[in-house]
Computed example of a mutant assay.
Amino acid sequence: MVRDTKFPARLLAAGIGVGAGLGALISVASSGLAAYFARKIIVPENAPEELDILHIDGFPPNMRIHLPADEETTVPGTYGLYFNQGSGHAVIGDIVEYDPRSRTVSREILSVTRGDIRRAWQGRWTGIVYPDPIAAGVNFEDIEIRSDAGNLPAWLLPTDHPEPQDTWAILIHGRASTRAEGLRAAPVLNTLGVPAIAMSYRNDAEVRVETTSRYGLGDTEWIDVDAAIDFAVSHGAKNVVLFGWSMGGAIALQTASRGRNRRFVTSLVLDGPVVDWVNVLDGQAKKNLLPTPIAKLTLEMITQPWARPITGLETPLDLDRMDWVTRAAELDVPVLLIHSDDDEFVPSGPSHALAGVRRDLVTMPSYSKAHHTKEWNIDPVRWEDDVANFLEAKILPKD
């Protein structure tokens, strides 16, 4: 007997229906996952306190903290530790002991700037050693920058140098950070006689509207930096140097190229900057094992008008406009580019590419063991020397 190998029409139709349904389900799941990651990129959130504080021993000024050993807590240098939902802060110094068997590390507590660390059980490791200007040992005044986003709190850092410069610095922090991040530059700027503004910008925790705020990744925040330049110029600045950390670097580059005050911008100092967002987001997708089609859909969602109801973005982001490897020929001011080669969040490749094609303008010293935006923490003397030498060579008047 010869069997009929053809599917009955009824079963074939059922199979097609199941396949279509499964395909639709997969498509919906993929879209949902892409939407989740798109919102993770652009929706502001406070960095969590997830580092266990295992034990505190000793008494001030000789205290130690015991922590799980990970890729951050085992790196030499000086760091900050926020605790109690950011209300507490301590300065953590060198490694005293490392136990590979228990995977724990003991480090010095150099100071507790606020709060009671003995009562804390979790914290957040950070490069922010100075949580405020008082901790940085510099003069300051609380001011507000007036932008279309509202009144943005900032610190004016007037220098106590006997001959202050007419070049001012604007300090622009990175994504999910605060204006305190820029205070690492405050002491060297004070020594050089450069007044500075450590600013906040739209979407910061201090000013954000929780349900509607969305990061522009530099494509919108530069408007607030332009407003900070207004303040500086109205108070005597003739020139401005923009300092940018991480996403703050992307913001600085946009300000220097698009701002109505760009004529005042004479140089940039960028630390771990985002020079090419597509490169960063691609790297994060791979790190999170995100399939390529979903990663591409994620990028499409933050750059295309059709996804605005999903992302909540008023205007899609122009990532091409923030690709400074492609736009390298448009760079027109000197740049000090500090970027560690082991940066785990913003790969240093695009920074090297930019420095390679614009050797006429870009100075890029070699850093290799600092992770993301922690070059100062590893070696503050070297970082400050690099900054001082660059500013004195490029923009500050010679004696």
Rank of each mutant, 00 (worst) to 15 (best):
N261H: 15
D94H: 14
L189S: 09
V18G: 04
Y98K: 12
G259L: 01
H235P: 07
V269R: 00
Y367G: 00
N288M: 11
A185C: 10
I53E: 02
L189F: 10
S177N: 06
D204L: 15
P334T: 07
D332C: 05
M63N: 11
S368M: 07
D276F: 15
P61I: 07
T315M: 11
G17Y: 09
T292I: 06
T126Y: 11
E181V: 12
I143M: 04
L183C: 00
M199C: 02
V335K: 01
P162G: 06
D276E: 13
F243G: 00
P48Q: 06
K286Y: 10
L22I: 12
T311C: 07
I197T: 03
H339W: 14
K398R: 14
K40P: 03
G349H: 09
A250V: 06
V357Y: 02
L12A: 15
I170Q: 02
G17E: 05
G182R: 07
E181Y: 12
V28K: 12
L354M: 08
P60D: 05
T212K: 12
G19Q: 06
S30R: 11
R208W: 15
V96T: 10
D57L: 14
P380S: 00
E181T: 11
E300T: 10
E72V: 15
W306M: 02
R107Y: 12
A47I: 06
V209Q: 09
A237V: 03
G182N: 03
M247E: 05
I302P: 03
G259Q: 08
G123Y: 09
F264R: 10
E314Y: 10
V280I: 13
S147L: 09
A205F: 04
A186G: 00
S246H: 08
R202Q: 13
T363C: 12
L317P: 06
Y36L: 13
I302S: 00
G19V: 11
D282A: 14
L396P: 07
G259V: 03
K296P: 08
P309V: 01
D132W: 10
P158V: 03
V278S: 12
A185V: 04
F243T: 03
F390A: 10
L156I: 05
L297T: 04
I53Q: 07
E221F: 09
V138F: 07
G137R: 01
E144V: 15
I42V: 15
A355Y: 02
V357R: 06
F231S: 05
T5L: 14
A47V: 09
L361Y: 11
A232C: 04
D271I: 11
F59I: 13
L331W: 04
I42W: 06
S200V: 07
I95H: 10
L337Q: 00
A250N: 07
L192E: 01
T113G: 00
A250L: 08
I378P: 01
E344V: 08
G58R: 02
E141F: 10
A328Y: 09
L217T: 08
P305H: 13
Y367R: 09
D142M: 14
V18Q: 02
G17P: 03
A69Q: 03
V105E: 03
L317W: 03
V387C: 11
D399P: 15
M322F: 13
I294H: 03
P162L: 02
A185S: 12
G356S: 07
W306R: 13
